[in-house]
Design a protein around this nucleic acid. Structure first.
Lengths: 146, 146
DNA sequence: TCCAATATTTCAGTTCTTTGAACTATTCAC
DNA sequence: GTGAATAGTTCAAAGAACTGAAATATTGGA
């Protein structure tokens, strides 16, 4: 039987979440802290308040969260030169090796998987993933604002 | 510039995790409880100890977790007829409407996205997602056992 | 039948994180 | 320059969830 798209999507999603948690564990971070690290890596230097909004946490909670990420060496804190009330948080190269090792293995496995597809098929897959990312972000925003 | 696969993958993953959390919030569940619900939906009736192993939690913690899911109406607990020490946890139809509503919107948006692809392209995408799920599960297991 | 092993639950204690309120520093409008 | 608003931090208290140990129930082998 052909698996229906909804099931494939749900199971893929569960697998992603469980992998994400396993990585967090490996990095010595909580799931929330790892998620925050993802946001920081994605949105480059980001202010504490924007990070708080993104994560739907209070600024005070973000202070502690960033403390932990800084202590672990994953991010850095620098005052915003244009507004010194602000703090810019950016992904730091510190423990990037750990991170690289973890994702290196995944990357290799994924590359092996990709080898089974033709270039034009891979282009379609990448295109889809990029657009699906946008859809998921929109749906996440919708869930929050409704 | 063409985005590299690693970036696409990482950002997609972050989006999935954030959507997952938003859904949990909407359902009145913690992220962990929602993850557990995903495992229960995936693995059908499952014993408490297998669920504990899957989630990497102690059985005692699973008792409380399942209590919460039962109270919320998402799963049911029934004694295993073949071994009454065991308890089988299965996804329950109780509050399935909530869940359906949340994923219905996502499903509609995803269907709209899918409409931009030809059937053979969609087949490739589905195939890829299914195989990527397997890879992620393997990598998750590897992270845990190493 | 008896005993060891297995499955789950209970419960007290601990840990971790978040919240809310107060405080400091800085910026912006007037 | 003064005052209101903004950004972030600190701190104490609260809340949620997990751990470990002990208890209960059931099974399976000797």
């Amino acid at each position: 039987m052909t698996p229906d798209p909804a099931t494939v999507g749900r199971e893929f999603s569960t697998a992603v979440v469980m992998f994400h948690d396993a990585v967090a564990d490996r990095l010595g971070l909580s799931a929330v802290d790892h998620k925050a690290l993802g946001v920081v890596m994605r949105d480059g230097p980001i202010t504490a308040s924007r990070l708080a909004a993104e994560l739907r946490m209070k600024p005070s909670a973000v202070t502690g969260l960033v403390d932990r990420l800084v202590a672990a060496g994953y991010v850095g804190r620098t005052p915003d030169p244009t507004d010194r009330r602000r703090v810019l948080i950016s992904a730091h190269a510190g423990r990037r090796p750990d991170l690289g090792a973890v994702f290196g293995r995944l990357g290799a496995a994924m590359a092996e998987l990709a080898a089974d597809y033709r270039p034009e098929e891979l282009a379609v897959i990448l295109d889809y993933l990029g657009r699906a990312t946008t859809v998921m972000r929109e749906q996440t925003a919708r869930l929050h604002q409704e």
